[in-house]
Design a protein around this nucleic acid. Structure first.
Length: 236
DNA sequence: GCGACAG
DNA sequence: ATCTTGTCGC
């Protein structure tokens, strides 16, 4: 259950901030902004990671939901170590190896990835959702709980209301109210998905709570997996 | 120069 | 992210 070492041909494992920035610059042009993904995917995956307080271990989880019923139809976890320090803007390098390993363990290939973090709403327009999308080739969207950058005004209190998230002249995402009167989330395009479709998808995934069912199920799974790994480590 | 800064 | 108590509400 351990994350494989530093040998995943799909990704780079930068050893410095400068190297990580170079990787983002190189991959950024590969993001598909045409929205070539299915407007109504049959399956949607949620991805999330939990960290041990010691900071030396993490658990990544992916849950695949039936897009219509929101029932979990598959899931997988991967326990490993953070692959990079936490640096705002380089966040993806920290979780990518473990998330890809978890994706590899799935039986059902999801048609859309819903990431816990941003996509284009990123200083170099290449947040975790873009990175995961490009590396896997799957449509992806980013849903952040707090903004990384951008100017915005609060959307109306009603579920479904939204305002643009802007970085200078560019609209990099949307501030979306997923529940009446509850703090909004920050939606941005990751890969092969339009902002309109991404918004519709997030609303379809939030019939009851602020956060998408995808991230909620993945969050519970990675927390449980981490707790189990910690318990095993303690007993060994 | 001084903050802000996804998880 | 994680650490943390109680508290308000359905």
């Amino acid at each position: 259950m351990e994350t494989l070492g530093a040998s995943d041909p799909r990704i780079d494992r930068p050893g410095s901030v400068a190297e990580a920035l170079a990787v983002q610059e190189r991959l950024r042009p590969l993001v598909d902004l045409a929205g070539s993904g299915p407007a109504e995917p049959a399956t949607v995956a949620g991805l999330d990671v939990a960290y041990a307080e010691s900071g030396d271990r993490l658990a990544a989880a992916v849950t695949v939901l039936d897009a219509r019923t929101l029932a979990v139809v598959d899931s997988a976890v991967s326990v490993g170590r953070p692959a990079f320090g936490y640096v705002p803007g380089l966040f993806a390098f920290r979780e990518l190896p473990a998330l890809l390993d978890a994706l590899d363990r799935l039986t059902v290939l999801p048609e859309l990835l819903v990431c816990d973090g941003h996509g284009l709403a990123h200083p170099r327009r290449f947040g975790l959702a873009c990175h995961l999308g490009v590396v896997t080739g799957l449509p992806a969207i980013g849903v952040g709980k707090t903004p990384l950058l951008g100017e915005w005004t609060p959307p109306a209190q009603r579920r479904g209301a939204w305002t643009p998230l802007c970085d200078g002249d560019e609209t990099v995402g949307r501030v979306l109210r997923t529940r009446d009167g509850v703090k909004p989330v920050f939606v941005s395009v990751g890969h092969r998905m339009s902002l309109d479709d991404a918004t519709a998808r997030v609303l379809a995934l939030t019939p009851r709570y602020r956060l998408p069912e995808t991230t909620r199920t993945a969050d519970r799974l990675c927390r449980d997996a981490l707790a189990a790994a910690e318990a095993t480590a303690r007993a060994t």
